[in-house]
Design a protein around this nucleic acid. Sequence first.
DNA 1: CAGCTTAAAGCAAAGTTCTTGCTTCACGAG
DNA 2: CTCGTGAAGCAAGAACTTTGCTTTAAGCTG
Lengths: 184, 184
Amino acid sequence: MVRPGGRSARVQEAVHTAVRELQEEVGRSELTVPLVATRAGVTPSTIYRRWGDLQELLSDVAVEHLRPDTPPPSHGHLSADLRGWAEQFIEEMSSPVGRTYIRDALLGHPDGDNAARCSAYAAEQIEVMLARAAKRGEDAPDVEAVLDRVVAPMMYRILFRPGDLTADYAHLLVRELLDGPTTR
Amino acid sequence: MVRPGGRSARVQEAVHTAVRELQEEVGRSELTVPLVATRAGVTPSTIYRRWGDLQELLSDVAVEHLRPDTPPPSHGHLSADLRGWAEQFIEEMSSPVGRTYIRDALLGHPDGDNAARCSAYAAEQIEVMLARAAKRGEDAPDVEAVLDRVVAPMMYRILFRPGDLTADYAHLLVRELLDGPTTR
DNA sequence: CAGCTTAAAGCAAAGTTCTTGCTTCACGAG
DNA sequence: CTCGTGAAGCAAGAACTTTGCTTTAAGCTG
């Protein structure tokens, strides 16, 4: 039974907060379940029973963190919207802390939906921008194309080629998506 | 000091083998350092000192596993080569065991180069195909374009949208890369 | 080839984390 | 108000991890 306002919700909140705080204070490698439990004012067994292990908990916190809190800002034109969004995406995700969040999100249980939720968040944001473009009568690609041509390449570099990532690269991807191939 | 033929090498070999065997026999969730150590005939402290923890060891084994052992087969034409390679990539990587290997590879120490090595392996294979195409006088994209337009989208789906992945999708990506946008 | 040097492995004890059965608590329903 | 139920607390035992010291063996030197 879901008890949104009850003790369970308070515990979840306290534990998530403890993870975020301790991650800043002591760093990832020192983070342990007993440590989080103490900070959150619960017993370790509560965490083990509810999340299973530290990875699962971190994955939960990461997905929570990656959820966008505002719609992407509008710049009056699809290319500017996408450009700005991709820029911000890189800014947030390519830092060590951003990469850690993405990795954590991926580390949850393989059959869970944590990873899928990350992609869904991106898709949501993109849909908002595409809908605005359609309303303005602009020619717009579909969500899948944006995921394949812009999000996927950025994510690939974040995960597999850290370092090879700049705002210029994001701009290039958006331009190639909207205008077709360009010389690099 | 590296002692390639010595005891260190034998231990590494034994431990890697133990991991691979036990992964099949008992499954990932039952895999522990002491278990691997026993099977490999070493003490747990050897593994802890050398790899740090189970994640790092699994990451090592995964990267090893992902290393291609043969050059991509030649089909006489770039589009066929890429098509075949992408098809095989999806076949190997989209299964639960393939996804596990990729996730494990990503799970190594963030500042290590395990993830980068995965990407380098793919780049190597692609370079071989592109070089063959150039030799035949075909028009060929550069490696970056193949990584961005074919590898990255496949990897994105493997990691973030498991299920949305078929050989047809791989074909589509290759076609769009070589022939420009098509209607989906 | 014998002896030396040294990186890595073995061992064992101490410390920490993880699991689990049982008890207690508190929200929500009747 | 009382009851039912799912979640949290507690505590003991098991398992895993860390660490200082000892031993082994690969590679170098004479």
